[in-house]
Design a binder for these strands. Sequence first.
DNA 1: TTCCTTGCAAATCGTTTGCATAATG
DNA 2: CATTATGCAAACGATTTGCAAGGAA
Lengths: 130, 130
Amino acid sequence: MALKYSRQRELIKNFLMGRRDHPTAEIVYKNVRQQNPNISLGTVYRNLTLLADRGEIQRLRLGDGTDHFDADISPHYHFICRECGCVQDLRMDAIDGILDGARQHFDGQIAGHITYFYGTCAQCSQGINS
Amino acid sequence: MALKYSRQRELIKNFLMGRRDHPTAEIVYKNVRQQNPNISLGTVYRNLTLLADRGEIQRLRLGDGTDHFDADISPHYHFICRECGCVQDLRMDAIDGILDGARQHFDGQIAGHITYFYGTCAQCSQGINS
DNA sequence: TTCCTTGCAAATCGTTTGCATAATG
DNA sequence: CATTATGCAAACGATTTGCAAGGAA
C-alpha cells in the first residue's frame, strides 16, 4: 500500500521525535491536538499503528495496560517505574546472548525476546512524588 | 484481609495446577464451568487476580492482549508463538545477571526484569497448523 | 453475626472499525 | 481519477466494579 502524505501523521511523528518519555496514544493525542485541534483519537491510533508496522517508531508493551510509543527505533532497553509509571531508556549492552540459552532445550524457532526492567525511578526513590 | 474458603477458588486453582499451557481467564472460565455451571466470569477474574496478588499463581503478560495464568510460580521463562499464540515454558538458566548491566548507568532502583521469548513453536514450524 | 464471596449486569478502559467525506498523487 | 487518510461515532475485547444475596468462620 502506497503511503500518502498527511499532515496529521507528520505532526504525530514529529511530536514523538521530540520526546524521550515514551508517551501513550492518549498523550500524543492531547499534545498534537494543540497544533491541530481537529485531529481525532482514531487518527492518532491509526497512524501510530501504521508507523509502528512500517518500523518508523516502536510500540512498547510494558504490562501497564496501555501501549507506549518511541520514535527511537535503535535497539535499546526500557525501565518502567512501578510507582509513577514513567518509562525511561536504559543504557546497556545488548543481551541477545540470552537467546542461545533459550534455544538450548527448545524445539521451535525463537526469533527474539522482549525484555524490560521495573522498579522505582530516581525521582520516586527520593520521595519527590508520593 | 482474611481469606475464606470458596469452592470456586479451589476449582480455579486446581484447574490451573493441572495445566501447563498457561490458559487465559476465558479458558479457565469455560473449563471450571463444567464442574460448576453457575460460576461467573467475574468470579474467575476476581479469584485469578486474588491468587496472583497473593503469589499463589503467576499472571503472564505476553503482549498478545490477554493475560495468561500459570500455577507454576517457580522462576522460569516463557515462549509465545506468533503463529498460534500458544505459550510454552522454557527450560533455561536464570538470566538475572542482566540486572547488573541494567543498573550500571541507571539512577533509580531496578527491582527486576520481565523477559519472554517469541517465534514459531515446533508444531507451527512443521506447518501442522495453518 | 460478621464479613468475605458470589452471580449478574452494567461500567470502564484502551483500541479498533465502518462509513461518508476530504486530501493526496 | 484512483486511492489513501480523516473525523466521528459506534463497536470491541478484556477486565473491573456495584450491589444485593449467599456462604464461611
